[in-house]
Design a protein around this nucleic acid. Structure first.
Lengths: 242, 242
DNA sequence: GACTTCTAGATGTATAGACGTCTATATTTT
DNA sequence: AAAATATAGACGTCTATACATCTAGAAGTC
């Protein structure tokens, strides 16, 4: 079965990588099965072993294949993706789980960006930002306080929008920015008296504290938010890969 | 400055990778700066270009370097280009940041799996598991308690291994399992008196609590761990996509 | 001055071959 | 039967070389 790969302009190792991926996806190679050795594939596709190797190594990095020195290369078992890698919208995921969710806006104002915010949003010092403090409820119980900062330049009219019970991200889409990626830093912190009062808990009670940077599809930083989540009513599940 | 790397048993590309890492960490190469070309490094270290390339490519995968076709290879800016959103090995990432890390084993025993553990590890009820409690230190300060559960069947002799100051994942590799993926559930919780004593904090102080399931490259569940991290000394950064 | 073209330097792709190291299995020895 | 040993197969490391492609800046042209 000598295969000749004729498409031009595509590197050979990419063709081999994709050929292997197709074999796996179509079930010709199934999970746990050993694939042909580098040498065999090299002969089959009439390329050098190093070229085959480069293709295989990329599939290993992706997690589709794995190998063991001196033994061989094998197809990995697919992992059940229970939504973990994905960024979810508070209202959407609450609705999916049949939970009642709502939100109120406690404050909204325009002011010059504090230094840290300017740095995170890639703004010039003093450029103006919209600051929005919201309180979110699950089944009428307050669970989260958000202090969000958005570049005023990108969303000039947002203060006139209805923001109650609406997700900011949906509003952003009206301005042409679709949320794509979040980078979140997580810590456990004691509740300050201010936050404790809002969340109806004791000062010092554990808070899941998040600093969150949101990027749009084009890479623009559209939001920076401090999140204070009630420790006893909030958990976050994430998947990470090596 | 022709460098001869004499240590035996270590691949050349690893030596070059570590030499470059050292240059960056010690500030001889600073963020944004262009590093010597592959050809120059090859001559400097007296190896072939492909060997240099392999070392560089690994640092790029780590996020320490980045490159542009036709231009050159550059040192990344920390906390900006550098990707700290991947699953990291405690000891490796501490070393990369120049932080002193250590760990001790408080308990190790073999017992039948509790129901929840069996479910998470995909074991039959009552199948035996290895339970390991470790305490991790950063600069001599205790920061994390781990209660890890591994299927006994997969790692029969692990209780005889040296586990102090060694990452479990490195030991697992001896048994042919390479860690690939983690699914982690995060919460903020108050410290129990037991955990508080171990971490040298007050009971009730905030803990970043994690339940962590670890999958190997072939998809096997190799570990389930409860992690108790000191809230004031531990943070986790994750990236999520829509 | 503005535009186009050329070129040096850097990374990207690809080859062929050599030898090292690891693992499972078959073989031999005890 | 059990243990030690040898071996074949597969991946891991490394070299030397060649040419392709990309980018920034230099050189030339209008």
């Amino acid at each position: 079965m000598d295969k000749i790969l004729t498409t031009e302009g595509v590197p050979l190792y990419v063709k081999i990588r994709e050929a292997l991926r197709a074999e796996i996806l179509h079930g010709n190679l199934h999970p746990g099965q050993k694939i042909p050795s580098e040498e065999e594939l090299a002969q089959q596709y009439r390329v050098s072993r190093m070229t085959v190797r480069q293709g295989i190594l990329e599939l290993i990095k992706e997690g589709l294949l794995h190998r063991k020195h001196g033994v061989g290369t094998f197809v990995s078992y697919p992992h059940f993706d229970r939504d973990h890698t994905h960024l979810t919208n508070f209202f959407e995921s609450a609705r999916e789980q049949g939970i009642e969710a709502s939100s109120t806006v406690l404050k909204i104002e325009i002011s010059p960006a504090p230094e840290k915010i300017a740095q995170q949003l890639l703004l010039k010092p003093g450029e103006s930002v919209i600051c929005i403090r919201t309180l979110r409820f699950v089944n009428q119980t307050p669970v989260t306080v958000h202090d969000s900062y958005l570049p005023h330049r990108l969303f000039p009219e947002i203060i006139h929008e209805k923001l109650e019970n609406v997700h900011l991200w949906d509003v952003m889409e009206k301005y042409g920015y679709r949320v794509k990626r979040a980078i979140q830093k997580l810590e456990a912190r004691p509740a300050s008296s201010e936050i404790a009062k809002l969340l109806d808990i004791k000062p010092g009670a554990p808070i899941l504290y998040k600093e969150r940077k949101i990027l749009a599809t084009d890479g623009t930083v559209v939001e920076f938010t401090y999140c204070y989540n009630r420790g006893d009513m909030y958990s976050l599940t994430v998947a990470m890969e090596r």
